[in-house]
Nucleic acid binder design. Sequence first.
DNA 1: GGAATTACATACCTATGAGTATGGTTCTTC
DNA 2: GAAGAACCATACTCATAGGTATGTAATTCC
Lengths: 219, 219
Amino acid sequence: MVMQYPAPANENDAKDDIVRAAAELFMNYGYSATSIDAIAEKLGATKGRIYHYYRSKSQIFFDIQRAAMTRLFEEVDPIARARLQPAEKLPLMAKAHLSLLIRDMPIQKVAVQGLEKYLFEAEGFRHAKTLAEINQLRDDYEQLFAEVIDAGTREGVFVKGSPRILTKPFFGAMNWATVWYRPRRTQSEDDIEMICSSLVDFAMRGLLVDKGGLHEAGG
Amino acid sequence: MVMQYPAPANENDAKDDIVRAAAELFMNYGYSATSIDAIAEKLGATKGRIYHYYRSKSQIFFDIQRAAMTRLFEEVDPIARARLQPAEKLPLMAKAHLSLLIRDMPIQKVAVQGLEKYLFEAEGFRHAKTLAEINQLRDDYEQLFAEVIDAGTREGVFVKGSPRILTKPFFGAMNWATVWYRPRRTQSEDDIEMICSSLVDFAMRGLLVDKGGLHEAGG
DNA sequence: GGAATTACATACCTATGAGTATGGTTCTTC
DNA sequence: GAAGAACCATACTCATAGGTATGTAATTCC
């Protein structure tokens, strides 16, 4: 029988295909309820292909986390390094963050919600190192936002409060989209932009101190 | 062998014990990764006990949802019915909502995050009726908040925008606690109150229009 | 152009876990 | 106090799914 493999060019692409397929199933059914066979079927292949690139199901999960954090950093870190005031910089970061969340929902949802992460923690030392690595990435990423929030607080443009406790609802307003958002066919690119802007605006108002601006009366 | 059953008084209490134990495991490990045996072990019993009260694992899951929504309604609905201005009523509702979330985390987390709900949707008609019932409860509950937000918007005390899209980040700021919050031994009741207040304040600022209050100059 | 390696498919092993069948013990009811 | 019901443990069935072992076509390398 003549078998032709689509040939994903190189190993990285092949793994990326697996990661994408797995993330989509993890997002909908959870990690445990998703079988390797189901992932393979989504790729039009069998288990053999997956186990050729990954030694276990958990390794796929960890690669999803790494992929998600890598992409978030790529989008947000450059903005975080820009020379801008906190009140200007933060919404740009938030916009980039949220845009990626929505556009890359399967992978990002698995990462930000940390689906069933306690599964691996319970396994003890086996994945301790990998888990520490992932947590470090997540902490570093949160830190990008926490620092800007802290700076804004000290400048007096953001409300007072520990950056730790302010960062949580800030992310919450945006990340909660991974729980409620469902893509619609009737939704254009502009619609998505509108939603993103609304959520970012909400999150920013949560931080900004009342500026006492004159009532820009009525429209 | 003399066997003594703790005898949970009546059937409702017995089911409630099961629901609590199951919720705690679902919260940490997810629905699929939690076995009936594990739930039984947490109760110091075996499967026999659980299958005496529940016909299937999924029925436990649905009972968790119902229990969560029932409690939320009990706490929030009375406040929603009170004769108060939106700007006064909403933070009280939010406080009650969040307090219950944190105090009843296992059950509430399973409910608000809808863990692996797609599992049951994929099963087609089998649980269609129950799923419709649960979704209805959730929608009704969200509606309590959406109406107050809508009223506030029309009065001009809350920012303009569809209540639909404003409700999401409002819940997000609070419900995200089910993702990041972990109880600490060093945390007193007052600490929890502080966290709740901070999150509610954040969420309210996300809605309130800039009042132009005079700078209550600096602390 | 033959050998080794890559890139899978197929077949198989095994543990787990949902659900059932059955049996025994306590409680209730008459 | 006997019969039934309620309550629960134990033993079993069976499907699923993670992982492995093996076979085989394509590719690469010498």
